[in-house]
Design a binder for these strands. Structure first.
Length: 875
DNA sequence: GAGTTTGAAACT
DNA sequence: CAGTTTCAAACTC
């Protein structure tokens, strides 16, 4: 901190002088750096920004320092974790060191502020600079209307998150351009700024496109990754430029620090991202920085491992519900994703996380698709325009929010005062592209009343909440609150909709009734009395799932499945199962039974894929029947098309989860991460939970599931997660890791395979999925059972399966092994049965990628839901 | 946009 | 565990 001040002084004194000179004085190397050259070459617009940047720099040492010290990252990372949402605004400016000096003079106060804001961590000059810049940016924004400027479209914010992953560069450029133009005005005219911003943004966009594209081309995928981590981070811009020229560690460092995404209550994501980035970057920064990171970083990790995830990802209805519609998009995404690196996947996940709430960002979904595909191919391909549109400036929001917590009231006022932004893209439904918005007034967004909070995400600018504490600034408060709520109800943040193992084999389903309720069900069920489960008042209906026996609704007419029908089907199905070996299995979870059935029916082998494929479809089908979503889901499923097409449609309910909502990408991604992992992980969780914790109903499950999700998300990430994941997650990770790795591999696997595998995967665990993919032959199952599951899983799995993950209360009925033996074609089968069971559950197409993943949450939930099932399931 | 309805969440 | 209150979304006008 000290250094920054000094630097500020220097800067201020030298402000008149060229930045280069100042920088040189402080850090000669910087001047020489290619970065400066690049900056110099930049368009005139830069200058304006530069001035702007200068403000940011005021406190900071010369920009060149930044280049010099890679360490910055560490701190930035730490901050990062805590404050996912930094504004990206001034980053560009900072990158343009030349101009900066000039601007510094403008706001010495700001610099001071920024300095004050800086975390207590001691930072090298360069680091300080970076950090300070970031902070300054944020502060500036908060203090001034600038934030608005950066906010192109509140709605887009979500998209931006997604987009960020793809091309942060664009944002940066845009921001820079905008900032340059607007800088002079920003402070004085906050209100006007917004309007201007939009206009300016458009202009700047056009102007900057060429440059952006160029820059883009230069940027490596790494940048993208970084972007993912820090959508906002002003650093991002800097980093981007730096990356271009130097591609040096600095870039990486800068990138890392980027703030977490706005909404990442699920710190996991942010953390995962950060970690993932670190890995990907392979920069040395990672470990040391992490170690350095303040207690907060550790806290964040804890959060990540712990509660954040559980609550976060796909658990919530929001994500689930929304995810449904865009199955197609998800599919495509999945495909694209397959090609895309895991990092991209993570990005998507991040996006999803943010979008979980809504899952509706249809536009965003498409954009994301494009982005993904484009990114997979090459970042350069991306259209800057898209970026611009999507790119948000979370920083803006955060800036505002970064204001003192005490200022929450003000904060509220601000948020309210600027309804324009929020309203700009807010849909009538209150959902942005993909992200939900809340309108909390009394809960401070710290209760489950708040959709954002319930979804494990931070409130966004688009939210109309008052006195919101669900913001990165109040991370601690949020975390504490979450813990409290979880202490009351460990599953409070668990996905409300669980994909119960109930996925009935198609055959059986057919036998019973096409109307069979999808496997996906609301964990707690609804309690509707007047809405007849035909309105969104009904959580089941809202989630596009049918009512189940868990529901206490009156006069249920849920279009997605009536409670009565569900019960009837369930009953019939259970009978069939019971007739078979299933009874022996007493383990009990519905899943097990189903699996058992499947095994008996030979579905697993011959039709295994089909089943898997179908299974995912099946859930959606119901929906499809009644709703649009179902249709979409079908589309997705169509790819897989299991043996029985018709049936598929029937069963689809899961698809909803797995499927992407309108914003499939985000939601999907999230879901994928969650669910992919989740579905798999969900089962995993169950297994893992059972393994590690038989008892737990507790939060651990959620955390575990989450962790699993992450791991599954990406191969590399999985590793990162392991390392990065806090203790809690780690516990669970042990088992999952292998799985995770598998899962990731699956995801990465070729698109075609993926799809297939994906369907399988859902059923099976990630590892299993791999096997399946590798071995398409019937033997796959066996292989999977044996090969896939890590020993731990195998052992654990059998018992686990017996135990219902979701239901803490539930106890092991019997060891699965015995059952498996009985079942079986072979003893292996017995084990398999458990696994097989998993396979069934998998139905969602986890491999497919994000979309499929959506199911994951259901799976996770499944644990909880399982309990219900167990109750319901006749045995 | 304001007011009402609805049901989940929180509280007792 | 049940009843009541609080809350915010969904819905209606």
């Amino acid at each position: 901190m000290d250094s920054p001040e000094t630097s500020k002084n220097n800067v201020t004194t030298t402000a008149s002088t060229t930045t280069a000179a100042t920088s040189s004085s402080e850090s000669p190397p910087v001047q020489e750096s290619p970065f400066f050259r690049f900056v110099n070459n930049l368009s005139p617009i830069k200058s304006a920004k530069a001035s702007h940047l200068a403000q940011g720099f005021l406190g900071l040492s010369s920009p060149p320092l930044v280049f010099t010290s890679p360490r910055i990252n560490s701190q930035s990372e730490a901050q990062f974790l805590k404050r996912p949402q930094f504004s990206q605004s001034h980053c560009v400016e900072t990158s343009q060191g030349n101009n900066k000096s000039e601007s510094f003079i403008d706001d010495p106060d700001i610099s001071n502020k920024s300095a004050s804001l800086l975390p207590g961590n001691v930072i090298t000059d360069t680091q300080k600079d970076l950090v300070i810049k970031n902070d300054e940016n944020t502060q500036h924004c908060s203090s001034s209307p600038r934030v608005d400027e950066y906010l192109v479209d509140p709605v887009d914010v979500d998209c931006m998150y997604t987009t960020h992953s793809v091309n942060p560069d664009v944002k940066q450029f845009n921001d820079a351009v905008e900032s340059s133009q607007e800088e002079s005005k920003d402070v004085d005219e906050p209100e006007n700024i917004e309007d201007e911003i939009t206009d300016v943004g458009g202009l700047s966009k056009e102007c900057a496109k060429s440059e952006r594209q160029q820059c883009r081309n230069s940027f490596s995928q790494d940048l993208q990754e970084y972007e993912d981590c820090g959508e906002m981070g002003p650093n991002s811009s800097i980093c981007a430029e730096n990356m271009k020229q130097d591609g040096s560690e600095l870039m990486q460092a800068c990138l890392k620090p980027r703030g977490m995404r706005r909404r990442c209550l699920q710190f996991e994501e942010a953390a995962s991202n950060a970690f993932g980035n670190i890995k990907s970057s392979s920069l040395p920064l990672n470990t040391p920085e992490e170690s350095r990171t303040s207690s907060r970083s550790s806290e964040l990790r804890d959060l990540i491992a712990y509660g954040s995830k559980p609550s976060g990802i796909g658990l919530h209805l929001n994500s689930i519900v929304n995810a449904m519609p865009l199955a197609e998009g998800c599919m495509q995404k999945m495909k694209s994703v397959s090609s895309v690196s895991w990092q991209k996947v993570e990005n998507m996940n991040k996006c999803l996380i943010s979008s979980n709430m809504d899952g509706q960002s249809s536009v965003g979904a498409e954009d994301e698709r494009r982005e993904i595909t484009a990114t997979s191919e090459s970042p350069s391909t991306m259209d800057p325009s898209n970026y611009l549109d999507h790119v948000e400036h979370p920083a803006d929001v955060h800036y505002k929010r970064k204001l003192n917590p005490k200022e929450a009231g003000n904060f509220e006022e601000m948020s309210q005062s600027s309804p324009k932004r929020k309203k700009k893209k807010i849909s009538a439904t209150g959902e942005d592209d993909g992200c939900k918005r809340c309108n909390c007034k009394k809960s401070k967004c710290l209760k489950l009343y708040c959709d954002c909070f319930a979804a494990g995400i931070y409130c966004a600018e688009t939210c109309s909440c008052q006195g919101c504490y669900n913001r990165p600034e109040y991370e601690d408060t949020v975390f504490e609150t979450r813990q409290q709520i979880e202490s009351r109800n460990p599953l409070a943040f668990a996905p409300k909709i669980v994909q119960r193992a109930t996925d009935f084999p198609l055959n059986e389903m057919e036998d019973v009734h096409l109307t069979t309720p999808s496997s996906a069900r609301h964990k707690r069920g609804c309690n509707c009395k007047r809405s007849l489960c035909l309105k969104k008042y009904c959580e089941c209906y809202q989630a596009n799932v049918g009512c189940s026996s868990a529901c206490r609704c009156e006069g249920c007419k849920n279009a997605y499945g009536k409670k009565e029908d569900y019960i009837a089907i369930e009953h019939a199905f259970s009978k069939e199962r019971l007739s078979g070996r299933v009874e022996k299995v007493s383990d009990g979870t519905f899943h097990n039974e189903l699996e058992m059935v499947a095994n008996n029916t030979d579905l697993l082998r011959g039709d295994l894929f089909d089943l898997h494929q179908l299974s995912p479809l099946t859930p959606s089908l119901q929906c499809s029947d009644q709703g649009k979503e179902a249709a979409k889901s079908r589309v997705l499923t169509g790819n897989y098309h299991p043996s029985s097409g018709s049936d598929v449609t029937v069963f689809t309910p899961h698809a909803k989860f797995a499927e992407c909502p309108e914003n499939p990408e985000r939601s999907l991604v999230l879901q994928e991460t969650n669910e992919m992992v989740g579905t798999d992980s969900g089962h995993w969780q169950l297994d893992s939970d059972n393994v590690e914790i038989m008892d737990q109903s507790s939060p651990r499950c959620t955390s575990v599931s989450n962790a699993g999700r992450f791991a599954s998300m990406s191969n590399a990430p999985s590793r990162t997660m392991d390392a990065s994941i806090p203790s809690k997650t780690r516990e669970w990770t042990h088992h999952p890791q292998a799985q995770q790795s598998h899962g990731s591999s699956n995801i990465l696997s070729g698109g075609s395979l993926r799809w297939r595998s994906s369907p399988i995967t859902p059923m099976t665990r990630l590892g299993e999925i791999k096997n399946l993919e590798c071995n398409e032959s019937e033997s796959r199952l066996f292989d999977i059972l044996e090969d896939e599951t890590p020993e731990v899983l195998k052992e654990a799995s059998t018992p686990r399966e017996s135990v219902k993950a979701s239901s803490p209360n539930q106890k092991r009925v019997s060891p699965p092994k015995s059952l498996a033996r009985e079942l079986g074609s072979s003893s292996s089968v017995g084990l398999r049965s458990g696994r097989k069971f998993i396979l069934k559950a998998v139905p969602s197409f986890p491999p497919l990628t994000p979309c499929i993943d959506s199911k994951g949450p259901s799976h996770e939930n499944s644990g909880a839901s399982n309990s219900k099932y167990s109750k319901q399931a006749p045995r």
